[in-house]
């Protein structure tokens, strides 16, 4: 539902003219921040000024100083280093989950759209039922049952967001499937895999990628929420949500240890939204 809400407003965004794929400055800023966090997730931990797991300051909830750029946490560990390390968990888990969810969802959606019949009906009904479970609750129940580890988190998040992706891809593919060039290809006697891969997939790719971005945001939010409840990434490791949880006691002191991880999450999610909202209409609404 959130996806629908966001796409509606995405349509309100002013349309840009000009050849090729050009991004306006809001989109460019968004993209720059996304790339920045992606680089940090890969090389960040080696840039960290202090070892992320080590107590380096005798003071807890320390302020911003020259040694500790973002203060220290409840044990006196360097927040800056922990955020750099946390990027790897937050971005990595979310990226793995969103890739799995969208790949599965899009493949199943396209197959359902082309195959139709009982396969389509049963799959659609079943996956719609999954949409009837609030996402955070689904995570809670699974973690309660099997315990929390990184693969469990990835698969849970995949399971939560795959139905939405399926629905989106199926709706797009059903439209494309009725177009003349698909009918022609079918009349030529092309096989179903050929139809799906060569005729339908290229024509829904743009909107699917935009949807992938939005889903990435939701996954980051749910992952942070789970970690915040203490059910996500387990100590001594910490993603950004877990960093906020660890240091929540410092909130009444206004400690930087709570504020900076929150800013990290917000900067990532808001910039993805900014980027998607300002994608050239050519990419975003290709099927329309």
């Amino acid at each position: 539902m959130m996806a629908e809400a966001t796409t509606t407003t995405a349509k309100d965004a002013p349309k840009r003219k000009g050849p090729g794929y050009r991004f306006n400055w809001v989109g460019r800023i968004g993209l720059a921040i996304i790339l920045f966090w992606a680089v940090v997730a890969v090389v960040g931990p080696s840039l960290a000024p202090h070892p992320p797991g080590e107590i380096v300051d005798w003071d807890y909830f320390g302020p911003v100083t020259k040694d500790f750029w973002m203060g220290t946490d409840y044990l006196g560990r360097d927040i800056f280093s922990r955020i750099l390390m946390g990027a790897r968990y937050t971005v990595g888990i979310a990226l793995a989950a969103v890739t799995l969810a969208c790949t599965l969802g899009v493949i199943l959606g396209m197959v359902a759209a082309v195959a139709g019949g009982w396969f389509d009906m049963i799959l659609s009904r079943l996956l719609d039922a999954f949409n009837g479970i609030p996402s955070l609750l689904f995570g809670l129940v699974v973690v309660a049952a099997v315990g929390s580890s990184i693969p469990v988190l990835i698969f849970t998040l995949t399971a939560i967001y795959m139905p939405g992706s399926y629905r989106f891809a199926r709706a797009l593919a059903v439209n494309v499937n009725t177009m003349d060039f698909v009918t022609v290809a079918r009349a030529r006697g092309e096989s179903t895999p050929y139809l799906i891969l060569r005729e339908i997939f290229p024509n829904i790719l743009g909107p699917v990628l935009a949807d992938l971005g939005l889903r990435f945001v939701f996954i980051v939010l749910v992952l942070s929420g789970l970690s915040f409840l203490g059910l996500g990434v387990q100590p001594p490791n910490a993603d950004w949500g877990a960093l906020v949880r660890e240091n929540i006691e410092g909130l009444s002191l206004g400690a930087p240890a709570v504020i900076f991880p929150s800013i990290a999450i917000a900067s990532l999610t808001i910039s993805v939204n900014m980027f998607i909202d300002n994608l050239p209409t050519k990419i975003r609404d290709r099927s329309e």
Binding site: T9, V217, G225, G241, A266, I270
Partner: peptide
């Protein structure tokens, strides 16, 4: 509204 939607609920609470 887009800022509130883009950030986790606990962050709204924290703020």
């Amino acid at each position: 509204t887009i800022s509130v939607i883009s950030v986790p609920e606990f962050m709204v609470a924290t703020l």
